[in-house]
Amino acid sequence: MDVVGFWTRSWTSDDPDAVRKLLAPDVEVEWNLDAPVDDEELLQVQHRIAAFADSVTVTGQTVAEDGTAIFYDLAAPFGTARMIEFLAVSAGRITEVRQVYDVTSVDRYFPGLYAN
Results as ranks from 00 to 15, higher is better:
37 V>Q: 06
79 G>T: 09
9 R>E: 09
33 L>D: 07
18 A>D: 10
107 D>F: 02
2 D>Q: 13
12 T>Y: 00
114 Y>A: 13
58 V>Y: 01
61 Q>E: 15
97 V>C: 01
63 V>Y: 02
102 D>S: 07
102 D>I: 08
113 L>R: 04
112 G>V: 08
69 A>M: 05
63 V>A: 11
64 A>T: 05
3 V>A: 04
21 K>I: 02
39 D>G: 08
84 I>Q: 04
31 W>G: 10
22 L>H: 07
107 D>R: 15
105 S>V: 02
16 P>W: 01
45 V>E: 02
19 V>G: 05
44 Q>D: 11
61 Q>S: 15
25 P>N: 14
30 E>H: 13
34 D>M: 12
77 P>Q: 15
17 D>F: 07
89 V>H: 00
1 M>V: 06
83 M>Y: 02
2 D>S: 11
77 P>D: 07
89 V>I: 09
85 E>K: 05
106 V>C: 00
51 A>E: 07
74 L>Q: 10
93 R>S: 05
61 Q>V: 12
25 P>T: 13
34 D>G: 13
101 Y>D: 06
6 F>H: 10
15 D>Q: 13
47 H>G: 08
30 E>L: 12
17 D>N: 14
116 N>V: 09
1 M>N: 11
106 V>T: 05
46 Q>F: 03
81 A>S: 12
7 W>E: 09
51 A>H: 05
20 R>Q: 14
22 L>T: 12
47 H>D: 11
21 K>V: 07
6 F>G: 06
67 G>Y: 03
72 Y>L: 12
96 E>V: 10
71 F>D: 14
48 R>P: 02
20 R>L: 07
104 T>W: 00
5 G>P: 02
7 W>Q: 06
8 T>E: 04
38 D>N: 15
16 P>L: 05
106 V>M: 03
101 Y>T: 08
52 F>P: 01
93 R>V: 03
73 D>R: 13
49 I>K: 02
100 V>P: 00
65 E>H: 11
29 V>Y: 00
90 S>E: 10
113 L>A: 06
85 E>N: 11
18 A>I: 10
55 S>R: 15
30 E>Q: 15
106 V>S: 00
8 T>K: 05
17 D>C: 03
41 E>A: 15
110 F>E: 10
85 E>A: 08
22 L>A: 12
96 E>G: 03
116 N>C: 03
78 F>P: 00
80 T>A: 09
103 V>Y: 01
4 V>G: 04
27 V>S: 01
9 R>D: 10
75 A>L: 05
101 Y>R: 08
78 F>E: 12
90 S>V: 07
34 D>K: 15
86 F>K: 08
23 L>W: 04
7 W>L: 08
79 G>S: 10
98 R>M: 00
38 D>S: 10
66 D>I: 06
37 V>I: 12
75 A>G: 01
46 Q>W: 05
76 A>T: 12
40 E>Q: 15
32 N>M: 07
9 R>H: 08
6 F>T: 14
13 S>D: 08
67 G>S: 06
107 D>Q: 14
55 S>T: 13
35 A>Q: 06
18 A>V: 12
72 Y>A: 11
89 V>P: 00
56 V>K: 02
24 A>S: 15
50 A>I: 05
103 V>T: 14
